[in-house]
Nucleic acid binder design. Structure first.
Length: 616
RNA sequence: GCGGGUAUAGCUCAAUUGGAUAGAGCAUCGGUCUACGAAACCGAAGGUUCCAGGUUCGAAUCCUGGUACCCGCGCCA
């Protein structure tokens, strides 16, 4: 299936043109060219019309003819009906198409419905989106921010296309690290009923540190003939670490065996951690809650069956005591079981893939995880293919996709830290965003002419929150995901430029305009007499294709770019075309254009998980 | 050492996946408000798309070889 097929919308002039050229190509060159892409594109230059067909050059090459001659034949054969003016040939064989204005008006009227022209997918299978991925006993940090908001945005886009989406928060809620914290808290006699997340976070780090031996350091010290004092120090550290690990291992065994007290304490850790997570998700306007939790503990009984499957089918081998899966095209295998019999991250991920594809029946599993784990997912996906979990039970092909994203950096281009050098928590970052947003909104509300003037503090705060959070989310989603970016609140919160607040402003401005008009007639004919109206209409018509494109490419920045272009085009229209002061029919037509633009902006921002307040 | 990513205007980023004259936003300079919200608009200036080859009607995009920075590389998750 080609991308062009999946992005076409009935009633959209572009798909009609595409179909017409497809027929023309078959008529001239025969049925073996039925699959040839007519390469209909929006023009980059208005002098070239609205659309161009770029197929003649490539096809001419294939059949050994001159491109311009073939383009001539295409012009003779193509039947665009009354969609467009007669097309023209330019350059090496481009065919330029200019739509008739009434065609555009009719298409816009057709798009002006609740669905905004977005066509639903007819695929009934669910899609799993793996996002957020928090660890129990740890604070959320900025690394979780991207996974969460990107994953949520992708989920919304897929849902908008009518797909059933299962958001899964693959919690780190099981295994040795958790047992280590539990052991440490119990040894310290901590009152778990009064436990705070900050205390828990500290305990986690201390537990990690106490169990971390310095085997490498000891080896290096011996090699470098370090002094006996240093070596003794390292040896003590190592034996302490061994002790800590073995105590944690005992705790884990007891937990696995269902020790009542331990299980109760374990649940307490989860509660303390997750309460803060839910708060953050709520603040972020992300559609997730307890129902999305499916962590490592869920898969704990699925790990051994994964090993059994690989062993029974001879898909793995033992290497230095560990169980590994080999790949044909690379040296390093994937470890799925440790020498000591323990399972690994990869084992848990394989269990999740098995569950998602074989139990849930998902035909697409999307992992929104840091780009640094690219190799890991390549291994795990290939292992899943070896295990034949890349097909659903009924034989449908499964797409396993890793959506890698870059890191958030500080002004020094190094991973974001606080001024004191500790890792920045997500909570503090978000509260800064809300605070900045509120400050900006409050400042604008000072002006007596502002629609927010006189609003109470709660009203200002609600808008400020939407603006601050929207600024952070838009900045995160608006450039290519794999790139690292520098976190710069000043730039994100700016109300001018390609930012969230700019789009929110464009939306709010239309809201007050429509409110002032008061008499929108949803059945009034759309008339596109001014060129700015025509341009705006053409941009509006692209929306369904953009949504489809993002659903396929999983690249939210394309939607951001589109929305910015729409807001920009609207500004041009708004500047050139009076709405409220226009004559009856023109006024009604323009009000419909305003209303449609407003709804596309609200819908598009909604797909990004960004609120669109009616005033700000 | 091996593997992956990135490199585009002074800065931050796009470029419909090989199409026409590489576009936006900041910043700079100039012009628009007795107002449909100036949080906006119009215009100017700004480019060896990291370098060198190659493929073809056509390359920021594909291929080969380099350079710089970032990341990953078996019993952690």
């Amino acid at each position: 299936m080609s991308a062009t097929t999946s992005t076409s919308t009935p009633g959209d002039p572009r798909s009609a043109i595409q179909a017409a050229f497809s027929r023309a190509i078959t008529a001239i060159l025969g049925d073996e060219f039925a699959e040839a892409d007519p390469l209909i594109r929006n023009t980059t230059n208005p002098d070239h019309g609205d659309f161009q067909c770029n197929a003649a050059m490539g096809l001419a090459k294939r059949i050994g003819r001159k491109p311009r001659d073939l383009a001539e034949d295409l012009l003779q054969a193509v039947d665009l009906g009354d969609l467009a003016d007669p097309p023209e040939i330019a350059g090496p064989g481009f065919i330029n198409i200019r739509l008739r204005t009434d065609t555009i008006a009719a298409a816009v009227q057709q798009m002006d419905a609740p669905a905004l022209g977005v066509i639903p997918s007819d695929d009934p299978r669910p899609i799993v989106v793996d996002l957020c991925g928090v660890n129990v006993a740890k604070q959320m940090h900025v690394g979780h921010l991207r996974s969460t908001i990107i994953g949520d945005a992708l989920a919304r886009v897929l849902e908008r296309r009518g797909r059933a989406v299962v958001r899964e928060n693959h919690l780190g809620d099981w295994g040795l690290p958790i047992a280590m914290v539990l052991h440490r808290l119990r040894e310290a006699g901590t009152d778990l009923d009064a436990l705070t997340l900050t205390e828990l976070d500290v305990a986690y780090r201390e537990a990690q540190a106490s169990a971390r031996d310095d085997a490498a350091g000891l080896r290096a010290a011996n090699e470098r003939h370090a002094g006996p004092h240093r070596i003794a120090e390292l040896e003590a550290q190592q034996s302490g670490a061994e002790q800590a690990r073995s105590a944690a291992a005992d705790t884990l065994v007891a937990l696995q065996q269902g020790d009542d007290e331990l299980v109760r304490d374990w649940n307490r850790l989860i509660d303390v951690t997750m309460q803060a997570v839910y708060d953050a998700l709520d603040l972020l306007n992300v559609q997730m809650g307890p129902e999305n939790n499916r962590g490592e503990s869920f898969y704990r009984d699925h790990l051994q069956p994964v090993i059994d499957h690989f062993e029974k089918n001879k898909l793995c081998r033992t290497d230095d005591g560990a169980l590994v899966v080999d790949f044909e095209d690379r040296e390093r295998p994937l470890l799925i079981r440790k020498r000591d019999g323990g399972f690994l991250y990869a084992t848990s991920d394989l269990a999740a893939i098995h569950h998602r594809t074989q139990e849930t029946g998902a035909d697409r599993c999307i992992y929104v995880v840091d780009a640094r784990q690219k190799d890991h997912f390549r291994d795990v996906f290939d292992a899943a293919r070896i295990a034949q979990w890349d097909r659903t039970n009924d034989g449908h092909e499964v797409q396993l996709v890793h959506v890698p994203f870059g890191s958030i950096l500080g002004p020094d281009k190094k991973p974001l830290k606080t001024r004191s050098g500790t890792n920045l928590t997500l909570a503090s970052l978000l509260s800064e965003a809300v605070e900045r947003g509120t400050r900006e909104v409050a400042a604008r509300a000072e002006s007596p002419s502002a629609p927010t003037h006189g609003l109470d503090d709660a009203g200002i705060a609600a808008i400020g929150r939407a603006v601050g959070i929207g600024a952070v989310k838009y900045a995160d989603l608006s450039s290519d995901l794999v790139r690292d970016y520098v976190f710069d609140m000043d730039r994100m919160i700016a109300f001018e430029g390609d930012t969230g607040p700019y789009l929110q402003y464009a939306h709010a401005r239309i809201c007050t305009l429509l409110e002032k008009a008061g008499d929108l007639d949803p059945a009034a004919p759309i008339r596109l007499e001014d060129n700015q109206e025509r341009q705006l209409a053409l941009v509006l018509l692209r929306y369904p294709g953009v949504v489809a494109d993002v659903a396929a490419s999983l690249e939210p920045h394309r939607l951001c770019g589109y929305l910015h272009e729409l807001a920009d085009t609207f500004s041009g229209f708004y500047q050139a075309c009076p709405v409220l002061k226009a004559e009856d029919e023109i006024r009604q037509s323009r009000l419909r254009l305003c209303d449609l633009t407003r709804r596309v902006l609200e819908d598009g921002l909604g797909l990004l998980g960004i609120e669109a307040p009616p005033r700000m």
